[in-house]
């Protein structure tokens, strides 16, 4: 199987969906000739033309709103928000409009819309090119929220997102765009939305993570296995909404110990919901306090390198948390 980077897998998924279905189109800032600032759409303009790869005006809410209207008219838009940090102007269109359209129209107008956005820190992006915004949207029924951590999943999940009849937010860990590599089979396959993946198996404790942190969690788990003989389950959540309670609980019932890792601000972050699920539905299996490792509760990731590194969870910090939890 050929090995490819995360961003190559994302591009291949879009390429295949564009080839498969003439209703699929891409819009966003610089997605055309430039191929996207991260090159996610590189070559697609040249291959599919300006009528299907549409550079948008520099206005995020309109990117989403045009997508909603076009989706209601039977097209299949893939909207790119250049950085997740810039999605906030479109919040109303996503939360009030796309998410509620099907419900508020009595199950008639559905919105088959995919919104892609690079998210996360560690790239020197400062306050406004580093944010994790998933928790704002995982609170909203009607949306689906997907975050891949491997090229295989990125391609299969993005294809599922494009084919889903509901609005899907597809957040991509941009730090891993080129550093995360993995095997991707040639040809058609999809990965279903709503299913977590056991990325690694072990019986001592469970690590729950997604995106870049899932990638790091596997690295940390390998390290503690090697150095300390601690064996971890690593659950890569993949789809944050709807949430795969079954896989989450199955791992916890086996280990009784949970570490939840996310790079968003710790308080009220996505990990709080995982902790709630484990304590409500897994209480009899609990063997230690549920532990969260997240970013500190400061407004955003600072630009200066040492400050950024102090903010970001990394394999070393995750390994330290694993050791602490294992010793409980």
């Amino acid at each position: 199987m050929p090995e490819m980077t995360l961003i190559d897998a994302i591009r291949e998924a879009m390429d295949e969906e564009l080839a498969r279905d003439p209703r699929v189109f891409i819009t966003g800032e610089d997605v055309g000739k430039r191929g996207g600032v991260f090159r996610a759409t590189m070559g697609l303009y040249q291959k599919y033309g300006e009528k299907r790869i549409v550079d948008s005006p520099l206005a995020e809410l309109s990117i989403v709103a045009i997508g909603i209207g076009a989706a209601c008219a039977g097209l299949v838009p893939i909207c790119e928000i250049q950085f997740a940090d810039f999605i906030h102007p479109a919040f109303n269109q996503i939360v009030n409009e796309a998410a509620k359209m099907y419900y508020r129209s009595g199950g008639t107008w559905n919105v088959p819309l995919t919104i892609r956005a690079p998210y996360g820190g560690g790239i020197g992006g400062g306050l406004y090119h580093s944010q994790s915004v998933e928790a704002f949207f995982t609170h909203v029924p009607g949306l689906k929220v997907v975050i891949p951590s491997t090229p295989y999943d990125a391609k299969g999940l993005l294809k599922s997102a494009v084919r889903d009849p509901n609005p899907v937010l597809f957040f991509e860990p941009k730090k891993g765009y080129r550093s995360i590599k993995g095997e991707v089979p040639e040809g058609e396959y999809t990965v279903p939305l709503g299913k977590a993946r056991l990325a690694r198996q072990g019986s001592d404790l469970s690590v729950y993570a997604y995106g870049m942190m899932a990638h790091y969690a596997v690295q940390a788990a390998e390290q503690v296995a090697r150095e300390d003989g601690i064996q971890c389950d690593v659950v890569d959540l993949r789809t944050l909404l709807p949430i795969d309670k079954e896989t989450i609980l199955a791992s916890f019932k086996k280990t009784g110990k949970a570490l939840i890792v996310y790079e968003d601000n710790l308080t009220m972050g996505y990990g709080a919901e995982i902790a709630a699920i484990l304590s409500c539905d897994g209480f009899e299996y609990m063997d230690a306090p549920i532990m969260r490792l997240g970013g500190p509760d400061v407004p955003a990731v600072p630009f200066s390198h040492p400050l950024q590194e102090a903010f970001m969870p990394n394999p070393h910090k995750i390994a330290a948390a694993i050791r602490q939890l294992a010793a409980y």
Partner: peptide, 8 residues
């Protein structure tokens, strides 16, 4: 803007 999307 949604109506613009329909027109698009």
């Amino acid at each position: 803007p949604q109506a613009a999307g329909l027109a698009f």
